[in-house]
């Protein structure tokens, strides 16, 4: 029998219920996000995955529920916003905005600077280094409208990485991205995990869950299951998660 190592959690969600207008989107969600894991959040469309992330980030107000960020013993009253980084879906931005790649990545540092203070040379250096990590260092002065979909995604990723946060939330970072970029992003995520960071990814491609992630949460209005991929990601749970959408699950058996 396996002896499970003692799990440390960074975020605890309890009794979270979110509703838009008539329909509930998230219902009575209880979720513990373990530290240092690469977690996928999967479920059918409209199942509340993005909503969950936004609720945790306080971007919307739930009907009920508690979201607790577990503080380290070393921290005093650290600003939660600075420990969490967010990579939203890239479709909501006007890419014709006059901004270079470096400009956008630098924006990620604004949270750490707080109101009024301006980014300095140190911030620019961090931004350039991060651009190198995502393979975009040659594009730093390129106008963002001239980027491909994969490149835009990498820029958004860099924008979150410069925050040097402990917990990263990403909303469908692989959507519409070419294979090369996808592989690059996965390497980056694994790298984050090796540094002890926690990464939560809303993921749409069931085929790659076992390959990319070590933890998975299955959501359809409620949490169907949450835990290590090899324990939780199997036919029965997937059927429960996707049953009302009639999705065919071929070759999903783990």
């Amino acid at each position: 029998m396996d002896l499970k190592t003692k799990l440390e959690y960074v975020i605890e969600v309890a009794d979270l219920t979110v509703a838009y207008d008539v329909k509930p989107v998230l219902w009575d969600v209880d979720l513990k996000i373990p530290k240092g894991k690469l977690m996928a959040v999967v479920g059918p469309n409209g199942a509340g995955k993005s909503t969950l992330i936004k609720a945790i980030l306080n971007l919307l107000i739930p009907i009920s529920g508690n979201i607790k960020f577990i503080q380290n013993r070393a921290d005093t009253k650290s600003n939660i916003k600075n420990r969490v980084a967010y990579v939203p879906q890239s479709g909501n931005v006007d890419w014709d905005f006059p901004s270079t790649v470096l400009d956008v990545v630098l924006m990620g540092r604004f949270g750490l600077l707080g109101w009024i203070k301006r980014p300095g040379k140190a911030d620019v250096d961090i931004a350039l280094q991060t651009l190198k990590k995502v393979g975009m260092e040659d594009y730093s002065s390129r106008q963002i409208s001239q980027l491909s979909g994969g490149q835009q995604q990498r820029v958004f990723l860099a924008r979150a990485l410069v925050q040097q946060a402990d917990i990263y939330f990403m909303d469908e970072p692989f959507k519409g991205v070419d294979t090369k970029t996808e592989k690059a992003i996965v390497l980056l995520l694994k790298d984050l995990k090796d540094q002890g960071k926690t990464v939560v990814v809303v993921h749409h491609d069931l085929q790659t869950v076992t390959e990319y992630f070590d933890w998975v949460t299955l959501i359809n209005l409620r949490v169907v299951a949450s835990g290590p991929v090899d324990e939780v990601f199997h036919q029965e749970n997937l059927r429960q998660t996707y049953r009302s959408t009639g999705m065919l699950l071929k070759g999903m058996a783990v």
Binding site: D15, T17, A19, D21, V22, P24, W27, D28, I63, S64
Partner: peptide, 18 residues
Amino acid sequence: RRRKMQKTKFGKMTLLFH
């Protein structure tokens, strides 16, 4: 009015489920 009714409705359901 609709929002308030929903909030109440969801509140009741949440408490019952809990």
